[in-house]
Computed example of a mutant assay.
Amino acid sequence: MGIKSFQGKRDTSQTNKAEEQILVSDYMTTKLITFKAEDSLDDVIALLIKHHISGGPVVNDKNELIGIISETDCIKHISESKYYNMPSDINNTVGNNMVTDVDTIDKNMNIFDAAFKFLASRRRRFPVVDEHGVLLGQLSQKDVLKAALKVKGNTW
């Protein structure tokens, strides 16, 4: 006598759900506050405070990502100039204080692969660019958490 399975009929819809990917493009923010290299840091600081953000992408006239400016970059400038009561000068621009070596993320990356990239890099957000370097949006750690809430436990 053979062994019978008591599991019942298998649900094949679960295997299809597991194959579906949740992409960065599904959860990235596309309405971003961006900055130009020629913007003054005083203007940047005012916008960071007004919009309750800690930084933003710096783009050129073609909307290509050229850097990131953050609160830390602004504080560094303040500590070097205003603390010593030095006048604002040409160094008071985004272009002179931004970070230009920026890690980006692809819009077609799986959102959970992006989560591992967050853990490995200890970054709070990644700009999303296309193959030409044009800024498409931004993925934050909070966006990954939103995606995780919408996913059923069995698709992890």
Rank of each mutant, 00 (worst) to 15 (best):
K4V: 04
S5F: 00
S5E: 01
F6S: 09
R10M: 09
T15I: 15
K17I: 05
E19S: 07
E19H: 14
D26R: 12
Y27I: 08
T29F: 05
T30C: 08
T34L: 01
F35R: 01
K36P: 02
E38V: 13
S40V: 04
D42H: 05
V44T: 00
L48W: 01
H51C: 01
G56R: 07
P57K: 06
V58Y: 06
V58T: 00
D61W: 05
I68M: 12
I69Q: 02
S70Y: 00
E71S: 07
T72W: 10
D73A: 06
C74F: 08
Y84G: 12
N85R: 04
P87C: 07
D89A: 07
I90V: 08
N96S: 11
N97K: 08
D103G: 02
T104F: 00
I105C: 13
D106K: 06
M109R: 06
N110P: 11
I111G: 09
F112D: 15
D113K: 15
A115Q: 15
F116C: 11
F118D: 04
L119W: 06
A120T: 06
R123I: 14
F126Q: 01
P127W: 03
V134P: 05
L135K: 12
G137S: 14
L139F: 07
L145I: 14
L145C: 09
A147P: 05
G153V: 10
N154D: 07
